[in-house]
């Protein structure tokens, strides 16, 4: 925060501090301090630190979010199997309780760290940071962070990931984007999962699901996937390869500005002074 030079007063909030404005005076020994910081600035600070870890180890970090049971872990199992021998994968699993998902992932032969949040409904950047230190990041190409199954809270917490992925499974219904706009607006790719069930659930329309997503002014890819056959996740694998290529290209150009997935905090009136990145203070 910069509260010394007054640079955090912008045309948008100046009226508040001008004479007669809401926060203009210090009557009876009071004073008002303009802050203009994101409410989650501490989390965001940690998230940018996590992003430095990913940059240093050249890892693509992807945050998977969905309702519980939409098929995040099954998708990861199929992805690991499909990319075996080609790309190195690691997984951070978030659940309220149990090691079940991390165990499933480890059985596929890749490192996994389980975060049990107890009662917390989302992962935050600090939890992810603790988990990062338990993973051999030097040997990892893609890190998947499987968030707590929840279409509400995880959308508000930046973990430092490069991309957000939201899954919408066929049994959930095709109007989920309209019901949970914050979550689906935060996604850089939406996967319609369990599309093998479309034949028995004709009430789900992929076209309606996509229209519901476009109603949020989202232009991101909307991919249909299922894990019943090896070709079922091909659109997703193609997308992953495109992201790896794009990230590599961005790193070569030295410009990762289009590779941070923090759409929720888009209108925070961020000023360079408000977003200082401090040096890494722990062992990488």
């Amino acid at each position: 925060m910069c509260d010394t030079c007054g640079c955090n007063v912008t045309p948008g909030n100046q009226h508040l501090v001008e004479p007669g404005g809401k926060f203009s005076h210090s009557a009876s020994g009071r004073e008002s301090v303009e802050v203009l910081q994101n409410l989650l600035s501490e989390n965001d600070h940690q998230a940018s630190h996590n992003r430095q870890h990913f940059a240093r180890h050249q890892v693509l970090a992807l945050n998977l979010m969905s309702s519980p049971g939409a098929g995040k872990t099954s998708l990861l199992e199929a992805t690991i199997k499909a990319l075996k021998g080609e790309l190195n994968i690691a997984v951070i699993e978030g659940d309220l309780e149990t090691e079940n998902d991390a165990r499933r992932i480890r059985e596929c032969g890749v490192p996994a760290v389980q975060i049990t949040t107890g009662s917390a409904c989302h992962l935050d950047a600090h939890m992810v940071h603790d988990a990062l230190h338990q993973l051999p990041l030097d040997d990892v190409d893609i890190l998947f962070i499987e968030n707590v199954g929840n279409l509400v809270c995880p959308a508000s917490f930046d973990l430092g990931q490069h991309r957000n992925i939201a899954l919408l499974s066929v049994p959930e219904g095709d109007d989920k984007p309209a019901k949970y706009p914050v979550m689906f607006r935060s996604a850089d790719a939406v996967l319609i999962s369990k599309t093998d069930l479309l034949q028995v659930l004709p009430e789900f329309s992929v076209a309606r699901a996509e229209a519901s997503l476009r109603g949020l002014a989202s232009q991101v890819p909307c991919l249909s996937v299922h894990t019943r056959s090896s070709s079922g996740i091909q659109p997703w694998l193609d997308w992953l390869h495109s992201q790896l290529a794009e990230l590599k290209d961005s790193r070569q150009r030295g410009d990762l500005s289009n590779f941070t997935s923090v759409p929720e905090h888009g209108h925070v009136l961020m000023h360079p002074h408000l977003q200082q990145v401090t040096p890494l203070d722990d062992e990488l």
Binding site: G29, S32, V35, Q37, L40, G266
Partner: peptide
């Protein structure tokens, strides 16, 4: 047109703090 850009609505900002000695 659905390709719009958001002008406001996703803010979550601590605007100011009023203090007393």
């Amino acid at each position: 047109n659905w390709r719009t850009s958001l002008e406001s609505g996703d803010e979550m900002v601590l605007q100011s703090v009023e203090l007393e000695a």
